[in-house]
Design a protein around this nucleic acid. Sequence first.
RNA 1: GUGGCCAUAGCUCAAUGGUAGAGCUCCAGAUUGUGGUUCUGGUUGUUGCGGGUUCGAGUCCCGUUGGCCACCCCA
Length: 413
Amino acid sequence: MQTLPGFRDFYPDDCARRNYILTQWREVARRYGFVEYDGPVLEPMELYEKKSGGELVGQLFDFDDKGKRHVAMRPEMTPTLARMVAARERDFKKPLKWFCVPQFFRYEKQQRGRLREFYQLNCDIIGEPLPAADAELTAVLIDMLRGLGLTENDFVVRLSSRTAWQQFFAQAGGKPEDEYEFFQVVDKAERAPAEKTDELLRKFGLTAQAVLDFMHSKTPTAELVPVLEGLNARGLGAFVEIDYAIVRGLAYYTGVVFEVFDRSKNERALAGGGRYDKLLSLMSDGKVDLPALGFGMGDVVLANLINDTPAAAAQRDAWLKDERACDVYVIIAQEERRSDALALVQQLRDAGQRVDFPLTAAKVGKQFQTAELLGATRAVLVGEEWPQVKVKTLATRAEVLVPSAELVSTLGR
RNA sequence: GUGGCCAUAGCUCAAUGGUAGAGCUCCAGAUUGUGGUUCUGGUUGUUGCGGGUUCGAGUCCCGUUGGCCACCCCA
């Protein structure tokens, strides 16, 4: 039996590498004052039909449960977040800075950087309309990646603005109800042939050239200036660029939008997000009307980039080594000392040490080999020296004799 | 959802249509109280699965499942 397509087994090494990313995400989020929340993995289907108008429903893992409820594995967090905020909005001081590290499920064809199951950090700020929030969100995003050993040479945040395109469209005489269709054309303008774009834009009285000229202008709009200032003040200016080619696919973005790309261009987007000031109101049927912004960052593309960035991979490997399963391996050189050894094992574990030992009789050489394999930093040899034991530092091969009663305090240092 | 390439030992890969192999890993020993090196020996396969062509198929053909890549999409 193999795993379902797009799903992963996490062997201990894989699990440790995954946890490295999740741990860094949580640490940096907390450093920025974000608090963690979570919701159900399984949700009623209607929750997702409401927001997207059914377009994304084909990419859901959905089924009928035994109570005949139509349910779906969660493909994203925003609907759940909207429900949670709407239900208890008054309980929380604004702005809310919430994060979540959910596992998502999307029925898509897998390829590099895209599976059917993945983890995605979600950070959202709710209840703050001013650009200071956009700068703070972008800053935490940058520091997430810096914390994983990536630099401005490895990735770039491309900042853009839906507002800027709205104004561009309005000045050309476009109507607000045509905005989304226009955004879709803009989104594809760089990839599509100019003639095709011209044809699609004709009804709006626009040309491909006009759109591309604006797209490639690097002048920040009034909305983006304070965001850039906020990042420059933090010393993070080198990580961002203005790029109006970023539009984002979905309809609900209202202001600043951004995507993060690796400089090598080998990967899909590392993260994406932006402001969605109307969405909470839409999803709560007007119960709460709070401005909001957020981003999502998946583990799959990120892990690829770390693998292919030597400095980041080295930092991860150092972390993994530090997380190894075992501090002390207790070697039982004489089986008649096994119960004495077990007493020591228990004392060390009570003192918080990570301790392992052979469950069955084995040669001393084999036991050292196991200690080595488990990444133990020290071995404690229990045998003919009793009531003393030998403490050996495996890296230096240095041995000292220690009375067994003093072992815990000796190793505690 | 559409199209292209691929599938051989735990891993990386060999094998003109003619006896399925190598390296690494793993296990054991050299070494009965001392580990990463070294040496010796050993285990491991319905060649993804199901059909077909052939005297004979890992190899050719059809189907199927899975993987990789591009497009589509990307909450």
